[in-house]
Structures are given as C-alpha cells and as structure tokens.
Design a protein around this nucleic acid. Structure first.
Length: 925
RNA sequence: GGGCGGUUAGCUCAGCGGUAGAGCAUUCGCCUUACACGCGAAGGGUCGGGGGUUCGAAUCCCUCACCGCCCACCA
C-alpha cells in the first residue's frame, strides 16, 4: 500500500475506474442478494436502441438508475437492475439502410434473410458498444440477465402476447386509413407521427355544379388530392348551402361527377364552409365518406407517387403533382385565390418525411379497455408518476387513445406470428400467382390479397410447414413485423421470464421504479402498464421517475444533424466518470430539462479532486493510528458539530432520494463536503493534528482523528451511489491506512449514519456559528485593511455587554478563532471598562465587539466606508423589523415564535447599531 | 384550439409563505505544510409586467407579455 503522503495530489480517474468495475462484478455485487427478509428493489433498464452508441441522455438516464439501485442496495435491499438493448425497429433498419446506400444498394437488392443477416451483424456491433459504455459509466447491472428484445425468450414472449390478445379478440386485421411514411415505406401508429408548423397556402378552388347553374368554392391546403375527390361537403346548418345537398358537381380536371353532401364535421366558419372530400387520403374525409357511402379514389400510392387513378398526373411525385394541378386549375379558370396559411404538417418521427394518410391493410390492437385499466392504475395511486405534474397528461392520453396499429412493413423486427394457407383459403389462381410473384411483398396491395383470402389465419410462433386445418403445405407467413414498441411494452415481463412463471417474476414483478425521459411516456410507459395489466393482471412498476432531456448550451435537443452532441465517453476521458455522473445528477432537477456544457463537468471534476485531496489529508493524519471508540460526549464541540452536520446531511440525502430528487441529494452532499467538512472542520482541527504544540496522544487529537475517519467513511458511503469509483478507491485506501483492510466493498453498504444519536443538543451548533461569524468578521477586516496574509494580528475582545452564554462559548472556543483568524494576541475584557485602542479597526460579532489594533496599517477612510455600509445594512433591517413589530396585526396574527424571533433580532440589531455608531464616533474623534 | 412548464445575480440554475442562494464568471489578496482542479475576502438581483389574497409573497390566486414543450381530424 502506498503511503498517503505519496498519493498524487491530482486525482486521475483512468486507473481507478479500470480497477473497480471488474472488482465489483467478479465479487457478484451486481446480483441481488438472496431474499431472506430483504425487500426486493428492481429496475429494468429502458433498453437503448441498437442504433449506434449511447448519448448524453442515456448517460443521464442510466446514471440516475444506478444512483437509485446502488443506494437501495447499500441500504440492504435485494437490488436487481436488469440490462438489455432494444432492436429499435424502424430506427435501426434505417441506420443499416443508410449504410447500404453508401454501397449504392437498397434492402431490395438482398433477400429478406440476407438483409436480416446484415441487421444482426450490426446489432452485435452496436449492442456491444452500448453494453461496454454502460460498464464504463459504472452501472451496477446484473449482467447475467442481459437481454435483447429480439432474443429467443423475448420472441417467445412477443408471440405469446400476440396470441393471447388475438384469442381475446383484441387484435384484429383490417383496411384503415393509416399514417404512412413513404420514405420508411411503412405504416406508423398515431403517436409515432410528429407535427410541425409550416407556412403553406390555402388554395380556393371553384367547383362548378354539373347542371351548369352556379358553383361552390372549396378551400384546401392540399390541392393535389382533389384528383381523388368523391364529394364536396358542407354543414347541414349552413344557410349559404341550404337545400343544395344532393346536387351534383363536376370535378375540375378529372371531369367526374361528385355529390354535394351535408355533414356536420364541416366547420362553416373555416374558409368558404365547403370542403372537398377525399376519403382515400384524409382522416376526416375517410369518416365523412363512410357516413355517406362515398367511393374511395386512391390517387397517391405507397411510394409517394401519383397512381394511375390520377389520370394525366399519374407517376408524378406529390410535390410535382401539386404544382401541375395548381397550374392547370389556374389555366382553366378554376383557381379563385391563394392565401398564405400556417398549418401543422404530419411528419415521421424517425425521418421527418411528410406522412401520407393512406388506406392500407394492417393489424390493430384494441386498446380502449387496456388503456382505461392503465389510467385507473395511476388515478388510484398504484402507478405513481414523479413529478406528479406528468400524471394529468399521461392519464388524458390514455383516456382518448385509439386503436394501436401494430404492424410495420419493414423487415427488422418480430415477424407477425400469423400464417395463411393458400390451399384452404379463398384464393383464386390469379391471386396465388400474384402472391408467389412478389415474395417480398413490395407491392402492398398483394398483402391485402393474402390477408383477405384467409378464412382462418393461423396464429402461432413456430415456423409452420403444414396447415393445421387442411394439411396443405402452401402456407405463407404474414410478411409484416410488429411495431418495436410492442416488444418494448412487454419488456418488464419478458426480462423477468414471462410467459413462464419464473422465480424472478415472482420476486421482482412488479418492479419498483421505471426511470425515463418524458418523451417516451406515451410511446413506452403507457404501453408497459397496459400490457402488464392485460397479460399478468398487475402493474409493471410502482413508480415512474421522469427526468428531463439533456440539451446543448443554446437549449437545443442534441442531435447528430445539429452537430451538437456531447459524447459521454469523451467527457469520461476528459473529466472522469464520477465527474460526468455528478454533473448529470446534480443538475437533474425533477422534470426539468438541462443544458449541458463543459463548465458543468469542470465543476464536478474539481469536486472529485477535492474529495481526493481531503481524503489524502485525513489519511496523512491517520497514518499509524488505529480506530478507537471515543464517545461523542468525550469529543470536542467541533467534532460533535461536524458529526451533527453529517447526520443531518445524510437524512436529507435519504429523504431526497426517496422523493426522486437526486439533484438535491447531490447538492446537499457537495455543500456538506466542501463547506462544512473541508472549509471549516478540517481547518478547525488542523492545529490539533500538526505543529509543535500538538499533543498527538492527547484526547483532542485522538478525538479529531477518530472523527475525521468516521466522517470521511460516512461521506464516502453517502457519495458512493453518485460517484462510485473514487469513493470505492478512497474507502479502501482509508481503511488500509487504518491498518484494517476491509474484506468487503463500499458498494455493498451499509448506507447509514455511524452514530445512533448524534443530535443531542444545539449548543455545538450555536458555538460553531459564533466561531464562524467571528472568524469571517476578522478575515474581512484583514482583507479590507490589506493586512499581509502571514501577519498575525492582535484582537481586543470586549465582552462587557455580552451574555453569559456568549462568554462561556467564547472561553471554550476562542482557540479556534485565534487560529483561523491568525491572531497573535487575544485579549478579553469581561467586565468593567474596555477602551478602544487607537489606530484600530472594529467589528461587531453577535452581542460583543472586537477591536483590531492596526498601527501603520489602518486606513480610516476605508474603515469608515466599511462601517457605514455595515450600519446601513443593519439600519434597514431594523426598519423592517420595527415596521412589523409596531403593526398590531402582525403581533396578533403571526405565530408567537415568529414574533419572538423578530423581537430578539430587533434587540440585537439595536445593540449592533449602537456599537457601530460608537465606532464611527471614535473614528471621527 | 386546448394542456403543461419556464421567465430569480453577467451565464447556468436552486429556493416555492417569514430579512434573496449556489456554481461559473468578475474584482482584490494569497503557492497558509490536503488540494491553484486550491484558500480568504468583496462586488453584483425593485425574483418578467400589472392586479389580488395575507400581519407578511420570489413563493398562493388572477391577468398580460415573451420563450419552450406536449396534445388536437379545422380542410
């Protein structure tokens, strides 16, 4: 073991971090301890998508979880944190497709199996990177339980869940208008669609009546869809169109007759009150169409191009088509006017491409009953959301949620566990030919043929070779995959072994906490609660801990395209992992987003260094000394004071962590360690430990050493959940310095206060407050009068007007003041006359005064300024207090202790002012 | 169109009913035998505007302004 004095004065994290992670893991400390009477504390990781590597948001999310898990583990719980990654559906497939694009290829240059091979290769690479990063972050995950949303067990669970929902009639297949991303070439669920305000135009188009008598003007933001119009609708109560419903209109450009219908979905106040109706390409119009039995004209295809139904415009992109339609309308005199218009455009949450509502054959999950159960779980307090302000929007979302489109037209994911038999289904030879000719189902409509022909879809997860109904071997599996959030929604179940009734499931489900950012509250959290309740009749977790999003210095979300991402690994290398963790935790105020920049990490790095050096100091002074039991009663007031302060801090930390406010916990620890422990306590005990007059065997020194080691031990424990590496390192160094190398690990706990009752009385706190006030006052005088830092000063203390409590405290604690304020000559006058020495500065401390003779150093002008300012502050404080105390209502209504407090303060301030006045008079005279 | 959150020292943010706080930055001193990634001292805010409740409001209520999110089928 290195001697403490040989430990370098700058903490270098690399070695420490490399050493302790394997030590923790190899000793099995990441695994939950056997049950016994331990409470299970369980967190299942929000599995990062295998789209690359972890960013700052992941670092925050996982650090917060690690803080909670380490804390509960140290407190004695059987703590389990389950690691894993998510296949990430569209997001991950997009990443790999981008890589293929660089090779000049698309996925259709490969067979489905070949493409999936590429996907698996990528997922290995990305998954490994992510799990490595979690280790670097110090996450105390039980690696023996590492899971992936597409591993065998998960796939089994997904198929089981699908089958269970199917049997209960909750899953159905149908042709609906869905959100289609032409770029990703897949349908999306409603929450996967984002909205963006864009400035566009509102085109007013004249639609003439077929009989040549008059016309109606419709307003639209999407003129190209008029090619697929099958009606015009007006509100039935709109007098402008009274009696017109039922008349036929001749659709411009297409020269088709379409009816004018009355429908109350139309808002008379908007535009002209007449709406063109395109049931195949607009959600509202789809419903209007259904109510009026209108035909659907599909003019936009799944590829984002105009279909053959678009006549002369077939084959054009939507954008080109819009331009040409508008030009044609104008040329033919149908365009009435164009006005600027801001509207919300739907865009894909994965690639920001404009979403097209398209009719398509998809699988849906009926969610109304499930969502209702989930909403009740939160309303009844079984699933609590922290901070609670998120509960309202969360429940509201659940309450008006529509069926969930769970099928996706990509290849990467859980293929729908449904098979179709071409032998006993309703398939003509022509249909079978079309199905066989397009094994990849590139043509979406072929899938409809497949699905619609099935008399009995066969739901089962294992590959099917023969139809269970007719024994036919012409079976085809549904080509779609499930929404990635379907398997994510099952995550708390699948990670613990569901659908099998495992020991882990019994012990750890429901889990304790789910920690996540608010951006996936609906997308993920809501789904887990719904599915947990539906499939296991129990909530998946009791507390949802929502943290903010990490933003850049300008408050922007971090993204690769903005080039403002901070890589956690870079920060770890530059500042150390503990500094990264501390910076993240201390800024993660509940529910608030945070702006991250280098400054934050510098401060945290400095804190780590402070811990390092304070520990060095303690160890240097402990070297060769064994721990001994010294009752707190036998220790000095400063020892008892720091012990009290630490005990207070620790209970604050426990309270804050219980309330899911780790930022406050971090700040409390920072304040205690730096201000109380380092700036005051260590400085206070230094003279007891070093120097010629010190008695190393005396009770004062022994007591101080014992207190130093106990408080350091305690504060390292308290800091460990946030800064695991440096604390583990120093804790071992501390104990080996004490000659009793521990066999255990700091991370194993306990997390508790070493003293059962440190809060005996308030006297030590008052005494230390007096010392601090006196020292600060004297230091201020020194600084203001430019007394050379090394120069010792004389102080005359006038206690003639002081209380007996003050006199006693001062006699007990004066040595501390003498030392910290560098005083050579400390004289006290307790009674009788005390005359102010000439050439001296003066200060008021509590209920007494001090004079500092400064011959040759005193600057009376400066002294006057200083005293005047002091006086002004005191005077304004007195005015405020007087105002209150002379107000009868204050005396009558304010609590008695508050009145008493202010009265006391008034008395003190008055005495202080009198002293300051006397000082100023002396200065003048 | 609804809902939520923010507006506090130059910057980033705490505080959320009893005389305004931290870190960074700034100014002045200091290599004081743990730490210059440090120590000591100082300056700096009518807590977005306006009303109200209260003995007392940065803190509670109303309202306005600006900023940011989320939700919503006004073409």
């Amino acid at each position: 073991m290195q001697r403490p004095q040989d430990i370098p004065s700058v903490y270098s994290p690399e070695e420490t971090e490399a050493k302790w992670y394997p030590a923790w893991e190899s000793r099995g400390s990441f695994k939950p301890r056997p049950n016994g009477d331990r409470t299970a504390f369980t967190i299942v990781i929000p599995p990062p998508n295998v789209t690359g590597s972890l960013h700052m948001g992941h670092a925050l999310n996982n650090t917060l979880q690690d803080v909670l898990v380490r804390w509960r583990r140290m407190k004695g719980d059987a703590a389990l944190w389950v690691p894993g990654t998510d296949h990430g559906g569209i997001a991950t497939q997009n990443v790999v497709e981008k890589l293929l694009k660089k090779e000049g290829k698309t996925r259709h240059d490969f067979s489905r199996d070949q493409f999936l091979e590429r996907m698996w290769a990528w997922r290995k690479e990305s998954g490994d990177t992510i799990l490595h990063q979690l280790r670097r972050l110090g996450c105390s995950l039980d690696w023996t339980r590492t899971r992936f949303t597409m591993d065998e067990a998960s796939s089994r669970a997904v198929a089981a869940a699908f089958a269970a929902f199917f049997e209960r009639g909750l899953i159905y297949q149908g042709v609906r208008l869905v959100n289609w991303c032409p770029r990703c070439a897949t349908a999306l669920s409603d929450i996967e669609v984002e909205h963006e305000e864009r400035s566009g135009f509102l085109w007013h188009i004249r639609y003439p009546f077929a009989d040549g008598r008059g016309d109606v003007v419709v307003a639209t933001t999407r003129p190209e869809t008029m090619l697929g119009d099958t009606a015009v609708a007006v509100n039935s109560s709109d007098e402008r169109y009274a009696g017109q419903a039922g008349r036929m209109i001749r659709l411009p450009l297409m020269d088709r007759p379409i009816p004018l219908v009355a429908d109350d979905a139309v808002d008379s106040a908007f535009g002209t009150g007449a709406v063109k109706v395109t049931p195949a390409h607009d959600a509202t119009d789809f419903e209007i169409g259904a109510r009026h039995g209108l035909p659907h004209e599909r003019v936009i295809g799944f590829d984002g191009k105009m279909t053959s139904r678009a006549g002369a415009f077939a084959g054009l992109s939507i954008k080109e088509c819009r331009e040409k339609v508008v030009a044609a309308l104008e040329a033919q005199g149908f365009l009435v006017k164009v006005e600027p218009h801001r509207n919300a455009v739907s865009i894909c949450y994965r690639c920001s491409t404009t979403i097209e509502p398209l009719e398509s054959s998809q699988w849906f999950l009926k969610t109304s009953a499930m969502a209702d159960a989930a909403a009740r779980a939160t309303e009844e307090g079984r699933v609590q959301i922290h901070p609670a302000s998120w509960a309202k929007p969360y429940v509201a979302w659940l309450r008006n949620n529509r069926d969930w489109c769970v099928s996706r037209q990509i290849w990467w994911g859980h293929q729908i566990p449904v098979w179709y038999c071409l032998d006993c289904g309703d398939y003509s030879d022509e249909k079978i030919r079309r199905i066989r000719e397009d094994p990849a189902f590139k043509n979406e409509s072929v899938k409809s043929i497949l699905r619609e022909g099935a008399r009995r879809p066969i739901v089962q997860s294992d590959p099917l070779s023969a139809c269970p109904h007719c024994g036919g071997t012409n079976v085809v599996r549904d080509p779609d995959v499930l929404d990635t959030w379907f398997s994510s929604g099952l995550w708390p179940l699948t990670t613990l072994g569901w659908p099998d009734e495992t020991e882990a499931l019994r012990r750890h489900y429901p889990t304790s906490v789910l920690a996540t950012g608010h951006e996936i509250l609906y997308l993920w959290v809501a789904r887990m609660v719904m599915m947990g309740l539906a499939l296991r009749n129990d909530i998946p977790f009791r507390d949802v801990f929502i943290h903010g999003i990490v933003r850049d210095k300008q408050g922007r979300k971090m993204s690769k395209s903005l080039n403002n991402v901070i890589d956690p690994l870079d920060i770890m290398k530059k500042f150390g992992t503990d500094a990264l963790r501390f910076a993240l935790v201390s800024q993660a105020s509940p529910g608030r987003d945070m702006q991250m920049a280098d400054d934050n990490f510098v401060g945290a790095r400095n804190f780590a260094n402070k811990i390092w050096n304070a520990s060095r100091f303690v160890m240097m002074n402990l070297n060769g000394h064994r721990p001994e039991a010294i009752p707190l009663a036998d220790r000095s007031p400063v020892d008892r004071w720091v012990v009290q302060r630490f005990a207070d801090t620790l209970s604050e930390v426990n309270a804050y962590l219980t309330q899911f406010d780790p930022a406050q916990a971090a700040r409390a620890l920072y304040g205690f360690f730096w201000n109380d422990f380092c700036d005051w306590y260590i400085e206070l005990v230094k003279p007891l430990l070093t120097g010629a007059e010190t008695d190393p065997a005396g009770i004062a020194a022994r007591s101080a050493r014992q207190t130093l080691s106990e408080v350091l031990d305690g504060v390292l424990r308290a800091l460990h959940p946030i800064m695991p590496f440096i604390t583990e390192e120093l804790w071992h160094a501390l104990w080996s310095t004490l000659g009793t190398s521990p066999t255990g690990l700091l991370m194993d706990g306990p997390f508790e206060c070493p003293w059962s009752d440190p809060l005996s009385d308030d006297e030590d706190r008052r005494g230390l407050a007096l010392v601090q006030e006196a020292v600060t006052a004297l230091r201020t005088v020194r600084s203001d009068m430019n007394v050379p830092p090394g120069k010792r000063i004389a102080v005359l203390v006038n206690l003639t007007g002081a209380s007996s409590a003050t006199k006693q405290r001062l006699s007990r604690l004066a040595s501390h003041i003498v030392h910290l304020a560098k005083i050579a000559d400390w004289r006290v006058v307790e009674s009788g006359e005390c005359s102010r020495p000439p050439q001296s500065a003066s200060a008021v401390v509590g209920d007494f005064e001090v004079f500092i003779p400064l011959e040759g150093l005193i600057d009376f002008a400066k002294e006057r300024v200083r005293l005047e300012k002091w006086k002004a502050d005191a005077a304004s404080s007195l005015v405020r207090d007087e105002e209150r105390l002379t107000n009868p209502e204050f005396r009558q209504r304010a609590p008695a202790d508050k009145v008493a407090e202010i009265e006391t303060r008034r008395t003190e301030t008055k005495a202080q002012l009198a002293r300051l006045d006397a000082f100023l008079r002396a200065l003048a005279g």
